[in-house]
């Protein structure tokens, strides 16, 4: 069974030789970040979903640049797998949660994208293993289920008790996309609210692209270290992307654009997909133009106003 794997020693060597520990200015455009750090054939993970704090502006940029043959870790995914598959970018998906809508289900039935079933817990654990520098981690789920036959998870006798235990191999993606509330120019980043595996993915991935609603001073992180989600030396690029989670919500910043989401949910065939991609991605140069011409200031103001729950997010 095919699965993405590199030995921890290869990954560690990459971290030693290719990841700078210097706090330099990593601010760049999404266009620069994606063209520099995402290659055809890469394995990509992202934190959270298209409805909540997902890195939607980065995903749209991947589609705009027509990256090919991507393998995605579809954890808690909603529209991302449909869009990346519909745009011809993704050809393999580790599921997770395959996603919303008829389009992606049909794409699987048509054999246009290959899927492997790791489950959400299995994928999160694979990334944790990648972050911990171990080749696998044991778990007591997946056992007895048919996911075992459509993933590379293995069942072996536990060497301590002799009872069956499930092993999942480490996952070290090529690139992680994280959309955050605040970042500084070096890549220190803060997420407010829950996350899926933000720190694990940042540790486990070769390249980390952070997009941020707001850029703050580096000293802010030193003053309040409990609130740091990701330290700068894991990060390769920082993109300033207000409304980067659109059409999803950014907790305590802006709400979901349900009208736009319904349009995404309604995509059933290639014609509708092409129309959506043309209108929202290919026909605009970048995220700023998308916000300006396709979303509009009035709508953004309205979505900001709707984000009335701020308790706990700081």
């Amino acid at each position: 069974m095919e699965y993405r794997f590199e030995h921890p020693d290869e990954f560690r060597a990459f971290v030693r030789d290719r990841k700078s520990r210097k706090p330099f200015d990593k601010i760049c455009t999404a266009k620069e970040a994606v063209s520099r750090f995402v290659a055809d054939g890469d394995y990509i993970v992202y934190d959270f979903s298209s409805l909540t704090r997902g890195p939607q502006s980065l995903i749209r940029e991947v589609i705009r640049q027509k990256k090919k043959d991507l393998w995605i870790g579809a954890e808690f995914t909603l529209h991302e797998s449909a869009l990346l598959t519909g745009a011809g970018c993704a050809t393999r998906i580790d599921v997770g949660f395959l996603g919303y809508g008829n389009y992606i289900g049909q794409a699987v039935c048509d054999g246009r994208v290959k899927v492997y079933e790791w489950t959400n817990g299995g994928l999160a654990l694979r990334i944790l293993a990648g972050a911990r520098g171990v080749p696998f981690l044991p778990t007591r789920d997946l056992l007895g289920s048919d996911n075992l036959s459509v993933s590379a998870a293995k069942v072996i006798p536990d060497p301590y008790t002799g009872l069956p235990v499930c092993l999942v191999p480490a996952l070290n993606p090529d690139v992680a996309f994280l959309h955050v509330h605040q970042a500084d120019i070096h890549g220190d980043a803060r997420i407010f609210g829950t996350n899926l595996f933000a720190l694990e993915a940042a540790l486990a991935s070769r390249r980390v692209i952070v997009s941020a609603e707001e850029i703050v001073e580096p000293d802010e992180f030193r003053k309040d270290p409990m609130r740091t989600t990701i330290p700068y030396f894991l990060v390769d690029a920082v993109v300033h992307a207000p409304f980067g989670a659109y059409p999803g919500a950014m907790p305590a910043r802006y709400e979901i654009d349900l009208e736009h989401v319904d349009r995404l949910n309604g995509i059933r065939n290639d014609d509708q997909m092409r129309k959506y991609l043309d209108e929202n991605i290919y026909s605009v140069a970048d995220h700023e133009e998308f916000l300006d011409k396709r979303v509009g200031a009035r709508r953004m103001k309205e979505l900001r106003r709707k984000a009335s729950i701020t308790e706990g997010y700081r």
């Binding site: 808690f76 599921v95 997770g96 949660f97 395959l98 996603g99 919303y100 992606i104 289900g105 049909q106 699987v108 039935c109 054999g111 899927v115 079933e117 489950t119 959400n120 817990g121 299995g122 007591r140 789920d141 997946l142 056992l143 007895g144 289920s145 996911n147």
Partner: peptide, 17 residues
């Protein structure tokens, strides 16, 4: 080659396990 494909486990496998 399924006839109809749905979302899959999500975290359901962990819950049921």
């Amino acid at each position: 080659k399924p006839e109809r494909r749905f979302a899959g486990s999500g975290g359901g496998n962990q819950v049921a396990s």
